[in-house]
């Protein structure tokens, strides 16, 4: 593990995960200890689904450290159909180079899916993150197909209740809040068993009430 951690520091931010997968998945550190330790960071080139019952439990914050690293590349970070305004001061406080952010507003699922697909395939995005209020298996299959050929961080958020039960998405993660904690359950992952109840402090709590 120690060498792996060193890799994070010295080599580029991408390192090869230890776990064996169908193909060689690349990971980017999430900079969240519990996640990095459990699964080695966020996979690239594989679609990740985040579901939560409500917004505000720290779900987007799970990605922000990774986005900060990715924003150092000369590529876009595409945010597609975000539910609210991605608030620039907060993102830049998190260290994200906000000039890399590309916000794409769509009015229906098929546009969202199309835009995500375009963004993934264009080779010009280091991360493609979408928000669905509803999605179909077919759409997700196509997106995953696009992801297969890329080294992009691809993720989508969807309300727990709207997410289809069986999806081709290789990574599925549910996020819940419990007081100061953000609770993470990895319900599906490539080349591994589900992992439940990883916990991290909600970053907002960290900031306003964090230890001195």
């Amino acid at each position: 593990m120690a060498t792996a951690l060193q890799d994070i520091h010295h080599s580029p931010y991408i390192w090869r995960g230890k776990e064996i997968s169908r193909r060689n998945t690349h990971f980017i550190t999430s900079e969240i200890n519990s996640i990095d330790q459990a699964i080695g960071g966020w996979p690239l080139g594989a679609l990740i689904e985040f579901t939560s019952k409500q917004v505000g439990v720290g779900e987007l914050s799970l990605l922000t450290p990774a986005l900060r690293k990715l924003s150092q590349q000369d590529k876009w970070i595409a945010l597609i159909c975000p539910p609210y305004i991605p608030y620039a001061p907060a993102l830049s406080t998190n260290g994200i180079d906000i000039k890399k952010i590309l916000v794409i507003v769509t009015s229906n699922t098929s546009d969202t899916a199309w835009a995500m697909d375009q963004a993934i395939r264009s080779k010009s995005c280091s991360a493609v993150v979408g928000w669905f209020s509803f999605v179909t298996e077919k759409i997700l299959r196509r997106l995953q197909l696009a992801m297969d050929t890329q080294e992009t961080l691809g993720a989508y958020f969807i309300n727990t209740e709207s997410a289809p039960r069986n999806v081709p998405t290789p990574w599925r993660i549910t996020v819940d809040g419990k007081y100061d904690q953000t609770i993470i359950n990895i319900t599906k992952r490539r080349g591994g068993m589900p992992i439940s109840t990883l916990a991290t402090t909600h970053p907002a709590i960290q900031e306003c009430c964090g230890s001195v």
């Binding site: 917004v55 505000g56 987007l60 914050s61 922000t64 975000p82 539910p83 609210y84 305004i85 991605p86 608030y87 001061p89 907060a90 993102l91 406080t93 907002a204 900031e207 306003c208």
Partner: peptide, 9 residues
């Protein structure tokens, strides 16, 4: 400053 990731329009 401490600011939220989402801002309501």
């Amino acid at each position: 400053y401490l600011r939220p990731t989402w801002l309501l329009p």
